[in-house]
Design a protein around this nucleic acid. Structure first.
Lengths: 328, 328
DNA sequence: AATATGTTTGAAACGGGTTTCAAATTAAAA
DNA sequence: TTTTAATTTGAAACCCGTTTCAAACATATT
């Protein structure tokens, strides 16, 4: 691999001049520039990004820390962020924490010491706060929320409205016996959606019926069995996310209960799976594309922490598909 | 952010000594080592990975280039590779090419100039060959295959056997009218599976019935409609992958055809979706975990190109679930 | 006590692209 | 033509952790 000094020697100029030709940072004599270009062509010289970033203290790398890359919600988000980053000349380093705080901490340190230009966090452990504050690079917390800290940007969907819309929709579908599968209450999303549900129940004088469930398929299976046992009269289920809704569908259809015939069902997140499955799942969608864009924008555009907004709530919307049937 | 010189100054030693304490590369006087450790503790000093990698010419970064991170097969693989890499002290830079050769080329160049220690490619464009050869870092081609080139490692499942097993299984399930949805024949996986199917057809003197389909949901929908129209007597379908199998399921169940009652169905890849859906999909699985592991192993263990094996074919296996019913 | 052997240690060079600063060259003004 | 201003250019410093190499110190041998 040729270096800039090598190129300079071959073109009969100084390394500084080569650098200037490459980056257009200063005027260079046309004839010399030509020579440099020619040598670059011939040698296939590509500047060493590591050397560059050592001096510039910018690596053109964005760290994206997710709890689980296999989870469709996260990888969908990751794809958008990656694509947005790419278009702006940034690379994305994807880090998978597997819901492990220690791994999360190490990843943040690693990203810091590799001069990442920013970090997008989709995890939520409160303990990570100090790490964020001392890392000294822009951090955006996506989808989740922890205690606010100076210089951090929060981007998330309007989960409270999501909870309301879901509940209202099921009522509008004629359900009178709605069971709400709450998401983990340690997550802001879980709490906000629950509040939405609760407030709508109050509005219609409906009694709350809740269970709590982790955001994954396996736990969804368990909770679905529990509903089957404890709420025989259920006719509407709000699952805490699409994955859990899929579990519910499986358990209920195995038990011979038709969805949406006997029980109507809806989830959150609008993951790809929700329209791949048959019947297609009604769900509440976040504008994940816009959210990903905003996250990138907050990182690569100079974030003005002083005056700028630090929290962005994006509207959610109902995607009505086949697991619910609204009445006229 | 403190530097090693700062730490050295505070501890009253030279930067070299601090480096030695951190890395254990040489004996250091116990008392001095203590002082250094203490300063590191107090300042929270973390060595700058960029500077380190500039000298060492190793960044502890592995590049993983995939055509589409949203595709479950790839993100499942990515998760394994990431986790395996992490355990070995490596980070993964995930690059999404969106099936775009130009993006693929740029990504490889980028990874080269950021001193990546290796690249795992899950794309297959023949045009990329020269890029691979000149990048000068170990490259592993996963799941796909292009014209062999010196110093590249190939890892893939035994797609030919996969094709055979799938066809034999459907026959064993009593199907007499099997339609094979071939994968794109530009991919080695598509070609090998087709050969497997063809050979089994010959063995049982069955006439071939094929259509070709891209490895995605949308194209799957189209092809499924075509089967419905062209092969009314079909009673068994080999989909080129699970995603397409899911399309087939949707189209057929919409048309009132029961699976596996009237038509038996099977896919390839054993993506998460295949057991999430109801009914659960019979599929041919590759040992993706082992394959990911092997890919990492080939990169981080010194690859001995001279003597070592350069191609690894992993056995596949049938995962019989609910869309096929074997007869006694 | 003197020489030989072994161990610690820090100054300096290194990796490679970027930028500063002053020197050299060119253009413009007097 | 000379002086002044503007432009181009390269040497050297910089970023920061690592490693080499020789000096300094400690221990062992004769």
């Amino acid at each position: 691999m040729v270096s800039i000094r090598e190129v300079a020697r071959m073109a009969g100029v100084s390394p500084a001049t080569v650098s200037r030709v490459m980056n257009g940072t200063a005027k260079v004599d046309e004839e010399k520039a030509q020579r440099v270009q020619k040598v670059i062509q011939e040698t296939g010289f590509k500047p060493n990004e590591v050397a560059r970033s050592l001096y510039k203290k910018s690596s053109k790398i964005i760290g994206l820390v997710v709890p689980n890359i296999e989870n469709p919600f996260f990888n969908q988000m990751a794809k958008m962020i990656e694509s947005e980053a790419y278009d702006n000349g940034y690379r994305v380093v994807l880090c998978n924490t597997n819901d492990n705080t220690e791994k999360e901490r190490i990843n943040i340190q690693m990203l810091t010491s590799m001069n990442a230009d920013g970090i997008i966090l989709m995890t939520s452990d409160e303990e990570i706060q100090p790490e964020i504050e001392k890392c000294g690079i822009p951090v955006v917390i996506l989808d989740r929320q922890i205690t606010h800290s100076e210089g951090t940007v929060y981007i998330h969907g309007d989960h409270y409205q999501g909870g309301r819309i879901a509940t209202e929709h099921l009522i509008q579908c004629g359900c009178t016996n709605i069971v709400n599968i709450k998401g983990p209450q340690i997550f802001s999303s879980g709490r906000a959606r629950y509040r939405g549900y609760r407030d709508v129940c109050k509005k219609y004088m409906i009694e709350e019926q809740c269970l709590e469930c982790d955001y994954n398929f396996k736990d969804g299976l368990l909770v679905a069995e529990e509903i089957l046992a404890r709420y025989p009269k259920v006719d509407g289920i709000i699952a805490c996310n699409d994955m859990v809704a899929i579990s519910v569908y499986k358990v209920f259809s195995r038990a011979g209960i038709s969805i949406p015939g006997q029980v109507q069902l809806l989830g959150f997140d609008n993951i790809e799976l929700s329209y791949l499955m048959t019947p297609e799942l009604t769900t509440i969608a976040q504008p994940s594309w816009e959210m990903g864009r905003k996250a990138m924008e907050m990182i690569i555009g100079d974030i003005n922490y002083e005056n700028g907004k630090r929290e962005f709530t994006f509207p959610v919307k109902l995607i009505q598909r086949e697991t619910t049937i609204p009445q006229e």
